[in-house]
């Protein structure tokens, strides 16, 4: 499986990467982790690398997370996307889900929380693969 981490914070990108790479957790069978620092770069990387899962920040320069989700869904309508944002209102979460996110995690997050959320996302991605077969 391939994962795309999208966040304008290097510290957050590193934290998510470390969580999924840590030896005692298995988020599916990860073969590649790609990283993007804004929504525009995320769309480019999604189109070229076709990751199975995406973690997406919302507040980013150039193209925000919701805009990136909409464009990714034009490329892959069933993309498995987890939003990870500091915006913690139900309204924001609902908007993200309405735009095509599969899950929502609020910052700050612990390693356990992000791994649990990504395990669910991996299940979604696997189901999608099975449904296509």
């Amino acid at each position: 499986m391939k994962l795309l981490i999208v966040d304008d914070s290097l510290v957050v990108r590193n934290a998510i990467d470390r969580a999924v790479q840590s030896g005692d957790v298995h988020v599916g069978e990860l073969t590649n982790v790609h990283r993007a620092e804004n929504g525009a770069r995320a769309v480019e990387l999604f189109a070229s690398e076709r990751p199975d899962m995406v973690t997406m920040d919302l507040t980013m320069p150039e193209l925000d997370g919701l805009g990136a989700i909409r464009r990714i869904r034009e490329i892959e309508p069933d993309a498995s996307i987890l939003v990870i944002s500091a915006l913690n209102s139900h309204k924001t979460a609902l908007e993200a889900i309405k735009n095509g996110a599969c899950g929502f995690l609020t910052k700050p997050f612990t390693e356990i929380e992000v791994v649990d959320a990504l395990k669910k996302l991996a299940s979604h991605a696997r189901l999608r693969t099975v449904a296509r077969a």
Partner: peptide, 9 residues
């Protein structure tokens, strides 16, 4: 960002 909830989004 975490103030969002207090203002209903």
């Amino acid at each position: 960002g975490n103030a969002s909830q207090a203002f209903g989004g």
